[in-house]
Deep mutational scan, measured.
Amino acid sequence: FKEKSRSVLREWYAHNPYPSPREKRELAEATGLTTTQVSNWFKNRRQRDR
């Protein structure tokens, strides 16, 4: 993950740790990642924050 992608994901996570499928698609387009990568990033981040 590039730093720019991570910062976008972190910003979204601060507002909503559970993005909808549509939001995940938008994030994937904005970051250049796949929706699976975005989903996994959020899943891992939520697990880490437990």
Rank of each mutant, 00 (worst) to 15 (best):
F1E: 05
F1T: 05
F1S: 09
F1N: 07
K2T: 13
K2E: 09
K2Q: 10
K2P: 06
K2R: 05
K2S: 14
K2D: 14
K2L: 07
E3I: 05
E3A: 06
E3K: 09
K4H: 10
K4G: 09
K4T: 13
K4P: 07
S5M: 13
S5Q: 12
S5D: 09
S5A: 13
S5H: 12
S5E: 08
S5Y: 05
R6Q: 12
R6N: 11
R6S: 12
R6P: 08
R6A: 12
R6F: 07
R6H: 11
R6E: 15
R6T: 14
S7C: 12
S7Q: 15
S7G: 12
V8T: 14
V8R: 08
V8E: 07
V8A: 11
V8S: 07
V8D: 06
V8W: 02
V8L: 13
L9K: 02
L9M: 09
L9E: 05
L9T: 00
L9F: 03
L9Q: 00
L9I: 02
L9A: 01
R10A: 13
R10G: 10
R10K: 15
E11A: 09
E11R: 04
E11Y: 00
E11G: 04
E11K: 06
E11L: 02
W12D: 04
W12H: 12
W12R: 06
W12T: 12
W12E: 10
Y13T: 00
Y13R: 00
A14Q: 11
A14G: 09
A14L: 11
A14E: 14
A14V: 11
A14Y: 09
H15D: 15
H15Y: 11
H15N: 15
H15I: 14
H15C: 11
N16H: 03
N16G: 01
P17M: 14
P17G: 04
P17F: 03
P17S: 08
Y18N: 12
Y18L: 13
Y18K: 09
P19Y: 00
P19Q: 01
P19T: 02
P19I: 02
P19C: 02
P19K: 01
P19D: 01
S20W: 01
S20N: 05
S20Q: 04
S20H: 04
S20Y: 06
P21Y: 09
P21H: 09
P21L: 15
P21S: 05
R22V: 14
R22I: 15
R22H: 12
R22N: 15
R22K: 15
E23V: 04
E23N: 01
K24A: 11
K24P: 01
K24L: 13
K24S: 10
R25C: 14
R25K: 08
R25L: 14
R25Y: 14
R25H: 14
R25E: 15
E26P: 00
E26N: 02
E26Q: 05
E26R: 03
L27D: 00
L27K: 00
L27P: 00
L27F: 04
A28K: 00
A28Q: 04
A28P: 02
A28I: 02
A28M: 08
E29T: 03
E29C: 06
E29K: 02
E29P: 00
A30M: 11
A30F: 09
A30V: 12
A30Y: 07
A30Q: 10
T31V: 08
T31G: 03
G32L: 07
G32C: 07
G32N: 14
G32S: 12
G32H: 10
G32D: 05
G32M: 05
L33M: 12
L33T: 05
L33R: 07
L33V: 05
T34A: 11
T34I: 02
T34Y: 01
T35D: 12
T35A: 13
T35R: 11
T36R: 14
T36D: 11
Q37H: 07
Q37V: 07
Q37D: 05
Q37W: 06
Q37K: 10
Q37P: 00
Q37I: 03
V38E: 03
V38G: 04
S39E: 15
S39M: 05
S39V: 03
S39F: 03
S39W: 02
N40E: 09
N40G: 09
N40W: 03
N40L: 07
W41K: 00
W41R: 02
W41Y: 13
F42T: 02
F42P: 01
F42Y: 01
F42R: 00
F42L: 03
F42H: 00
F42Q: 00
K43T: 07
K43S: 11
K43E: 14
K43G: 08
K43N: 08
N44S: 08
N44I: 05
N44H: 14
N44G: 08
N44T: 07
N44W: 02
R45P: 02
R45D: 03
R45W: 09
R46L: 08
R46A: 09
R46N: 09
R46V: 08
Q47R: 15
Q47C: 09
Q47A: 10
Q47V: 08
Q47K: 10
Q47P: 03
Q47T: 09
R48L: 09
R48M: 04
R48G: 10
R48H: 12
R48C: 10
R48E: 14
D49Q: 04
D49Y: 01
D49M: 05
R50T: 02
R50L: 15
R50D: 07
R50W: 14
R50K: 13
R50M: 10
